[in-house]
Design a binder for these strands. Structure first.
Lengths: 128, 128
DNA sequence: TTTGTACTACGAATTAATTCGTAGCAAACA
DNA sequence: TGTTTGCTACGAATTAATTCGTAGTACAAA
């Protein structure tokens, strides 16, 4: 068990974490039912993944009857922070604003979202 | 050789790509010299990595004497776009503005950068 | 009580990334 | 003419992720 801080979830692990963050807690079956809608996979595959994530310290679990109820150790906010920071470092030479402009340029944002961002920027500037 | 579009570089591959994007073209030795400053590693490790990246279609190369001169197939901009899009999808439920605010909240940006972003936002809004 | 169901645990196969040693080859050099 | 130098190619070991089959167990249902 290492620090959850240093853990770098794989893509499969991220899928599980996302579901857990949405639900708060979940059993292997809960998770598996969601995953199955996205792509076919065996129950024991999900089970094994979650067992390994538990061993790695990414998940905690609690026996409930014969089942285990899992939850994520790392919070969604923290994971986002880490992953964004890493992307800034490795892909944008450490420049957050480069990343921001890249994300905005990807035209995925509506005018309303752009307004939100502008408001957020103003808040940041004023605080300084 | 699959489409370079679909390729997902590993961390080691990203290190090599970053150097190649900076230099434009480079030999294995060039790359290895840069990498070695960051962490110890054997020359043939770098060689093998670049050979595999070549086989995957991530790099092209050209014989020059007995050496190969490599360059990246995918452009930095394209790679950034892909990786940002993927992050938005997997970590931010598809919301670019969520990612933007996360990146800004990470306090890594100077007031000057914030101004740049604001200017960029205005340009976007007016264009719409 | 026997059978079925729904779990967990475990081990094994597969695939991919990473690392590096060794071999071969050609040009430069002593 | 050897011999060293610096490259590529190749194969093998290691490690990690992924997938799934099988076995064990406990509780519920027949």
């Amino acid at each position: 068990m290492t620090k959850p801080e240093k853990l770098k979830p794989t893509d499969s692990e991220m899928e599980i974490l996302n579901i857990l963050w949405d639900k708060g807690t979940a059993t292997v079956r809960d998770i598996h039912e969601v995953l199955e809608k996205q792509k076919p996979s065996g129950y024991t595959t999900t089970l094994k993944l979650m067992q390994i994530m538990f061993e790695k310290g990414m998940l905690t679990r609690e026996a409930q009857g014969k089942m285990h109820v899992y939850s994520a150790v790392i919070k969604r906010e923290k994971a986002r922070e880490q992953v964004v920071q890493k992307m800034i470092d490795t892909m944008f030479s450490g420049s957050a604003s480069q990343l921001v402009m890249q994300a905005l340029g990807n035209h995925t944002s509506s005018p309303k979202e752009l307004e939100e961002i502008k408001a957020y920027l103003d808040k940041l500037s004023n605080k300084k």
